[in-house]
C-alpha cells in the first residue's frame, strides 16, 4: 500500500507518494498553469506513468486547487498539510511553520503534529511568492536568482505594500539606474518585512521552519531570521511539505473498500 498527496498551488502543483514507513517513493513538481483541473490531470498521468495509481490508493488533495482534484478521496487544507509535512521533515516539537506560497503566506503554530493557531495574509499579494515572481520578471530573473543576487545588494527600500505600486516603484528604480542587485535587495527585504510583521501577530515560538517554493532561498531565510531574531531552518524538501502532509493525511483515511492497485 502507498499513499498519495497532491498539493495544487496557485503557481505549482507538487505531489508525493509515500509508503507505510513514510518513506518518499516519488515526488515531483509541475507548473499549475491556468487550470487547476488540467494540472490535476497532468499529475494523474505522471503518477500512472510512474506506476502509482491514485484511483486505487488513498489520495488526499490540498492547496487552493484541492477541490479540482476529482480523483482524490479527500480535500484537506494546506494549513493542516503543511503542519503534518513540516512535522515530518523537521520534527514535531512546538514550532512555527512559515509557508510562503504563490498567493498566500501562512504562519502556522504547531505542536505534536497538530495545528495550534494560524494566520494567513489578507487578500493582497505583498509578502507572497507571487510578489517575488512578479518583481523577478521585471528584473528578467527567476525568483531563486533574485534571492541570490539580493545578497550582494544594499540599501534600497521598496516601500509600497501593494504589488502593483511596488512594480511601478521598481520600474522607477530601474529608470534611475539603480543596480539590479540593490533592487533585488529591496525586494527581498520587503517580502521579509511583511512576513515578519505577520509572524508578530501570532504567539512567538523558538523554532521557525520555512516551507513552500522559496525554501531554497537561503538569503531570504537569513533576512527573515534577522528580522525575527531567530534562526530559520528549511531544506529543499520544504517545497513538498504540503504534498507530503497530504500523503500523510491519506494514511489516516478509512481504507474500507480500497485495494492496492
Amino acid at each position: 500500500m502507498y499513499y498519495i498527496g497532491i498539493d495544487v498551488g496557485s503557481a505549482c502543483s507538487k505531489y508525493a507518494v509515500i509508503d507505510e514507513q513514510n518513506e518518499v517513493l516519488y515526488r515531483n513538481v509541475i507548473p499549475t498553469g491556468w487550470s487547476s483541473s488540467s494540472a490535476a490531470e497532468a499529475v494523474r498521468q505522471d503518477l500512472l506513468l510512474r506506476g502509482y495509481n491514485p484511483e486505487h490508493n488513498p489520495c488526499v488533495a490540498t492547496g487552493y486547487g484541492r477541490n479540482s482534484v476529482e480523483f482524490a478521496d479527500k480535500a484537506v487544507t494546506e494549513i493542516t498539510c503543511h503542519c503534518l509535512g513540516a512535522s515530518h521533515l523537521f520534527g514535531d516539537g512546538a514550532s512555527t511553520v512559515i509557508d510562503i506560497g504563490g498567493q498566500d503566506t501562512k504562519i502556522i503554530n504547531i505542536s505534536g503534529g497538530i495545528v495550534q493557531d494560524f494566520l494567513m495574509n489578507d487578500k493582497c499579494s505583498a509578502g507572497t511568492g507571487r510578489f517575488v515572481e512578479i518583481m523577478a520578471k521585471i528584473l528578467e530573473l527567476d525568483p531563486m536568482s533574485l534571492c541570490a543576487l539580493a545578497e550582494s545588494g544594499t540599501e534600497v527600500t521598496i516601500s509600497s505594500m501593494c504589488t502593483v505600486f511596488a512594480e511601478s516603484e521598481v520600474i522607477g528604480l530601474i529608470g534611475r539606474g539603480v543596480k539590479k542587485a540593490d533592487i533585488a535587495f529591496g525586494i527581498v527585504d520587503s517580502v521579509a518585512s511583511k512576513v515578519a510583521s505577520q509572524c508578530g501577530r501570532i504567539k512567538r515560538s523558538t523554532r521557525y521552519y520555512l516551507t513552500g517554493g522559496l525554501c531554497e532561498c537561503r538569503y531570504l531565510m537569513k533576512v527573515l531570521g534577522d528580522k525575527l531574531g531567530v534562526c530559520i531552518v528549511s531544506n529543499p524538501e520544504g517545497r513538498y511539505a504540503g504534498a507530503l502532509g497530504a500523503a500523510l493525511s491519506a494514511k489516516k483515511l478509512e481504507k474500507g473498500g480500497r485495494t492496492d492497485g
Partner: peptide, 9 residues
Amino acid sequence: TRIEAFMEM
C-alpha cells in the same frame, strides 16, 4: 481555506 483549516484544527 481559513475556515476549513480552523475546523480541521
